[in-house]
Design a protein around this nucleic acid. Structure first.
Lengths: 345, 345
DNA sequence: GTGGCACACCAAAACGTTTCCGGAAAGAAC
DNA sequence: GTTCTTTCCGGAAACGTTTTGGTGTGCCAC
């Protein structure tokens, strides 16, 4: 006989009362509650999660799903780890724990989600690497499992997402470059299958057209989001005739590979070519010339994700009255040297 | 009435038999087993993990603990994500799932481990970022929770660890540099509190002495394992009189910051200063001059970790007859340009 | 003095699974 | 024909918790 039963016997009290006392339920004398809490502390009692999960049908664990394809593994940096701080600070308020769920690269993410949910590993999920058509979203919505998607999807259905302000970033980058006299502005982005690729390029297109610059598909370079991708983008760039005078990178680390290729080609970034990266990343901080890019707080994003997710969960919604609204997460420009020159000068 | 009971009723069979059939237990007719499996598939039945956990006292989940300090978050690269592939490929054989457990930076890792274990989130743990004196190890050993430590600790007790071959790496680096004529060889490493710092510098010292070069504490530069740390190391380096002709970095990304500082100081890496990094990292691949460093397969390391961990667990030990031996994980030299010159020339 | 009410607690049921124990049926050995 | 295995299955207990319904006590109002 262990667990709550032992604790109850030690206090000469029924287990029901002990349970209520520990969980802050009413119908228990404050005096008694204090005794229970003290005894639990003293005996080092911690409720067995399996027991409560079984009874309550809830695990008190939230999952952050990570798609671990080779590309993600090599290049997602510490994006997810950066998120955890903010996520946990919110979840801890409700005694919820966070686990990261890395989907094996040889398993269908859809199956993985199903398995995790069916096995009751988590109560709710945070989805990342959203696809344009994402079966996970349909599944979770139908199964009525609370979730939030980091990144929009074109999947129908009524769900909540938070996405980075790619439109704003693309518009800001284009505006900036046009103001400096650039007309031929290339962009390096992943394929349209990744929703991000689609959205980003569309925003770039609209921004150009707003300035009366015709959209030229030849200037859209589709590459992987990695240094290698950056190198390859540079490779494509120097073959374009006439060579673009500016390039927007969807992933800041691309700049490392791009710079490398530019040096090889005798093109000087920040002088012959303007470069604007996307997310500020500590790793790119030492680039020379320094990269103009966009900053955001991963911690704050984590907080927003957690709060919005909780708002979708009936048990916690009352604490988050602003509700579960899909939002677009803004980024802040960090001006560097890589686009500091004017073309007319 | 859901779950196994429904399945049993559907088959007109007792739930005990259904359970045995699903779990591959004996005492069930092959014919019956087939029917059960087919029905389970058809009805989409998946056992409720809470129920089995409660009954079996086991969760079938293995945790990979990640200390999420600011430093780790910014600089761990994709080390952990890289590990997961190998880990999962082994764990999947036993229907075990892997979750990553990020310890909040404001929580004591020791308390975090206690909580995760007490709440029965995981059956066993993989510890990383081992400290020289690590309370987690003592706790898990005493509580008889299976675990394996990635990184040695000086904590006593009988536990299993896997650690990278820092001695081999340090010896190889020193040998290489000495062969090129270097005598004043600096090293950049974290403080001795991190076990890695201690071990690495000790190995460096022994290697030097083997070559009859006296150990000079002034050449040991204690910095953070980050680009910033590398920059700072470069800063210290140029102030040393006479300036060392070579430096060994414990963390390859330090090279980025180091190079930057060298350029500022007018010192040319690969010509005026030999540089050897530690782990090969995709990110550092585009450095100019290319960095001499050491390569390992994160996937293979993950496999080794998982197999060794399982060998410590009674329920799985039979499958891993080689047992739970602590091992030192070798790395392979990748020659680059950063240390290609000879000093005598 | 009776009814109503709030308070604090207890006992027992329930959550879904695995596993132990016993027993029926069928065949084998004598 | 009896006894002994073997094979397969059903019944029931157990895991540790939360929650529901019920109960006794004291208090107040009528």
């Amino acid at each position: 006989m262990r667990g709550i039963r032992q604790l109850a016997k030690h206090l000469d009290i029924s287990i029901g009362t002990v349970s209520r006392a520990l969980n802050g339920k009413p119908d228990v004398n404050e005096e008694t509650r204090k005794r229970v809490l003290a005894a639990a502390e003293e005996l080092g009692y911690v409720a067995n999660q399996s027991g409560r999960s079984l009874r309550q049908g809830t695990t008190n664990v939230i999952g952050l799903m990570i798609e671990s394809s080779k590309e993600t593994v090599e290049n997602s940096d510490n994006f997810f780890l950066g998120l955890t701080g903010g996520l946990q600070s919110v979840l801890a308020r409700h005694k919820l724990d966070l686990v990261m769920l890395p989907c094996p690269s040889d398993e269908d993410p859809h199956e993985y989600v199903k398995r995790m949910v069916a096995r009751r590993v988590v109560d709710a999920m945070i989805l990342s690497a959203t696809q344009r058509i994402d079966k996970r979203i349909d599944f979770l919505a139908k199964a009525k499992i609370p979730f939030i998607a980091l990144g929009r999807s074109s999947s129908g259905g009524n769900y909540t997402w938070i996405d980075l302000d790619f439109e704003g970033v693309a518009a800001c980058a284009v505006d900036r470059l046009v103001a400096k006299g650039h007309r031929r502005i290339a962009i390096a982005a992943p394929s349209n299958d990744v929703n991000l690729g689609y959205i980003f390029v569309e925003a770039y297109r609209r921004s150009l057209e707003r300035h009366g610059i015709p959209y030229d598909p030849a200037l859209v370079i589709r590459v992987k989001s990695s240094e290698q991708g950056g190198y390859q983008a540079g490779h494509e760039l120097v073959r374009l005739e006439p060579r673009p005078t500016a390039i927007i990178l969807i992933y800041e680390l691309m700049a490392i590979g791009l710079y490398r290729r530019m040096v090889e080609a005798g093109v000087v970034p920040g002088k012959d070519l303007a470069v604007i990266g996307f997310r500020e990343e500590p790793r790119a901080r030492f680039l020379q010339p320094t990269l103009t890019c966009f900053r955001m707080s991963l911690r704050d994003l984590g907080v927003e994700l957690a709060e919005t997710l909780l708002a979708t969960m009936p048990a916690y919604a009352e604490f988050y009255p602003k509700g579960a609204r899909s939002t677009i997460w803004p980024l802040e420009l960090v001006a560097g040297e890589s686009d500091a020159f004017s073309l007319d000068a």
